[in-house]
Structure formats: structure tokens, C-alpha cells
Design a protein around this nucleic acid. Structure first.
Lengths: 224, 224
DNA sequence: GTCTATACTAAGATAGAC
DNA sequence: GTCTATCTTAGTATAGAC
């Protein structure tokens, strides 16, 4: 993955050329991901995160002065570690979406972090509220444009509005991820997305085949 | 609504024939709904709930000995106040689903409570986890049976699996409710459900028309 | 950079007066 | 049934030694 290099460089740049400090920051962010995902941001305690990272509370607070700072850093860290699509390897929008969902299956902690914070931040005065509002708005715009393009190519089912399809896709994705967290045997998010996209898209060749999905799960989504 | 009478009777039955105590219990549960919806269960404080209910902390604790007890009572209370469908008035499964979603628009606090607790309880050792796991399992079974029946009547789109459709419907519903909480202007849950059901169901007569939905919003879902 | 020590606030829960 | 008062624990944040 190219994200590893990008992240390290970013970490070093943000903290200056002190490799040790950068490593510690990453250890803290991993611990914060764990605890925020388990308990939400409000109920998480800095002591618990410090313990999980193997450092003292004060050391944690030296790197991240406040609990809000730590939340922002954790969300940014998550975004940097998401699956980076290789446009050459995954030609169609449905394949990119399902590929992302398959990749997500390998990082359940990040999914849990995202789901828990999405819901928790749907409340007043939550520090992550602007982040998610922006994220939803961006996604709706991006996906609507993709569906629009599919419609222009004649691949969209008759009567389907691109903007509506975008909102449905986002909602469905979040919802099935949540169900999957409650009971991993009940539903597979990637398969649910395939089923939905099959309802919306006319050209079956644009969807990843069952064999393709199985290969992604075996070998990783993006081949080298 | 008939639910009011049913609730009062239930409240009285549960606490014995002391109307005053029953009223206070309801006031506490309303306050708890507000605070749990705003902050989640873990971050909510009993003091804040007591203040919102206009009583002292100790009085609250007299009625609900522990914070877990209060959570269980609040969830039960929510279930008792959900829209009760009148089978005679709403003949088809799609109409019942959309009717429920329209009714939900009138009680955003209960939606927020449900969404926040659903996500929060997707973590280890949350007291509401069994409640939601059971709820998801029940809903999947009920909806799958309904889609099965639609398929038997030839109203299901070719190639749609009832069990898959059930899981998609539940996930979509939860997901769009969450989006709606973040930005009420971005999406209307009931309209999103209509769009999805339109993709899955062949017989348009089974879906509530736009005029029908508008009437529900004006006059309430179930006419007297 | 990392630690110990501590200030300050607030949490859930309990005891006992009225 | 309702209250005041209090116990015990835990939260974020800060100061200052090394």
C-alpha cells in the first residue's frame, strides 16, 4: 500500500524530524481508535487510552493537549489509512464501491469507529459533527456525479434519479455496516451493496462478479 | 392515537394504582429519552436527567434504582409509543413500512434515541446490546416473510431474494435516518424507502402514492 | 519528552431525616 | 416518596521535577 509511506511522511512532517515521537503518536492514535470505537468519544477516557498505548496520561496529553484534539487526529488518521483506489485496476464505479467494502472487512475496528462516531455526532455540540456533515455532503455529491455518468452511458435503470441513488447507497452502506457490527453472521456489507447496485444498474458487466469478490478477499483488493 | 390509553394503563399496571407515581415515571422517561438521545447512554448523567424531569437525583433513583434500569425502561417506553398499525387501513407491507417512516418524522427525538443507541450498543458490554441484537433478528425474520409473501403473489422483482431484501431494507432505513439526523434537508427517510421499494416491487399499486404520503403528513397516518 | 503529583469537577450510588 | 448530605471513584487538565 502506498498509504504507509504517505502517512509516515505526513507524521514526520507534522511533528518535525523526530522519528520516535512520530512512532509514539501512531501508537497513541491506534489506542485511541480502539477505545473510541469501543465506547464512543464522550465515554472514552484519556486514562484508558494512555494505558492501552503503554504510556502515562501526562505523556498522552503532551502529544495531544485536549480530548478534542485527539478525536480530530484520530479521524484524520483513519482517513489516511483508508483503501486507496487504483483507478487503473478498478474501472467502474460499482467496482470501486464494492472493493472499498471488501477492504473494510479487514479493518473492523475502523468500521466500528466510524459507525459509533457517526451516530454519536448526530447530537448537539459534538466535536465531530461538522466533520461528518461535510463528509456526508461530499459523498452525496461524488456518488450523484458517478450515477449521473452511468446514466449518460445508458447503464442506469429507467426512472432512477442519480441524487436519490447516491443518498440510498450511502444510507444503505452505513446501515448494513451497523448491522454487521451487531451480528457479523447476519449480513455481509459488500454483498449487500452488490445486491443494491444490481437493482439500480442495468449493465451487469459493470458489477464485480462473485469470482472477482472472492479473489479480492483472498488476495487483497488492489493487485500490485 | 390509541397508544396513549394503552400506555397509561400499562404504566398504572406496572406501578400499582398510584396515578401520581405513574405520572412521575413518565416524566422521568421523557427526560431520559431527551438526554440519552442527545448524549448516548454512557455519557448521559443521572443528575442531568433528574434536572430535566424537575426532581432530585435521589427521587429519580427511587423510581429507577440504577442507570441500567433506566435505560431498559426507556427502551420499553419507546416501543410502547411507536406507531401502531391498523391492518384494515394499511393493506400492503410497503404501505405499512412507509407509513411507519412518515409517522417517525413526527417524533425525531425517538429516532435520535434509537439511532444513537443502536450505534453505541454495537460495542462490547453495552447493556442495550442484547436488545438490539434481538430486534434486528426479529425484524429480519418479519420482513423476509413479508417479501416472501409478495414474491408468492408475483409482486417481487425477478431475482430478488426475500432475505436479502429484508436486510437491505433494515440497513437502508437505519442509515437514512442517521443521515436525516445530521441534515434534515438532505434526505427524507420515507421518500428514500419509497424509492427503494420501487426498485424491489413490481406492482406499483402496492406502493403508497405521493398523494397518499402527503395526506398522511397532513392528517396523520391512521385515520379514525 | 516523560514522568509524579495534584487541583478541580463530576460521576453513580447509598444512608437516613422528614 | 422525596429530599439533603455524603461516600467513593473517575474524569480532564495543569504544574513542575528530571
Amino acid at each position: 500500500m502506498t498509504t504507509t509511506d504517505a502517512r509516515s511522511a505526513n507524521e514526520r512532517r507534522a511533528r518535525g524530524p523526530y522519528a520516535k515521537s512520530a512512532e509514539r503518536r501512531v501508537a497513541i492514535l491506534d489506542a485511541a481508535t480502539e477505545v473510541f470505537a469501543e465506547r464512543g468519544w464522550r465515554a472514552a477516557s484519556l486514562r484508558q487510552i494512555a494505558e492501552a498505548a503503554g504510556i502515562s496520561l501526562s505523556t498522552l496529553q503532551h502529544h495531544f493537549p485536549s480530548k478534542v484534539d485527539l478525536l480530530h487526529a484520530t479521524m484524520t488518521h483513519r482517513d489516511e489509512h483508508r483503501f486507496e483506489r487504483d483507478p487503473g485496476a478498478l474501472p467502474s464505479f460499482p467496482q470501486i464501491v464494492v472493493g472499498q467494502a471488501v477492504a473494510n472487512e479487514g479493518v473492523p475496528r475502523l468500521i466500528q469507529l466510524y459507525s459509533v462516531l457517526t451516530a454519536e455526532s448526530a447530537t448537539a455540540e459534538h466535536p465531530a459533527r461538522p466533520y461528518f456533515a461535510q463528509r456526508f455532503a461530499n459523498l452525496r455529491g461524488e456518488y450523484a456525479a458517478e450515477f449521473e455518468a452511468l446514466g449518460g452511458a445508458g447503464a442506469l435503470r429507467e426512472g432512477v434519479e442519480p441524487a436519490t441513488a447516491a443518498a440510498l447507497l450511502i444510507g444503505l452502506w452505513d446501515g448494513v455496516q451497523l448491522q454487521w457490527l451487531h451480528d457479523p453472521n447476519a449480513i455481509e456489507p459488500a454483498e449487500a451493496l452488490v445486491a443494491f447496485l444490481g437493482l439500480v444498474i442495468d449493465d451487469e458487466a459493470l458489477l464485480p462478479s462473485a469470482a472477482q469478490r472472492a479473489r479480492w478477499r483472498r488476495e487483497g483488493v488492489v493487485s500490485a
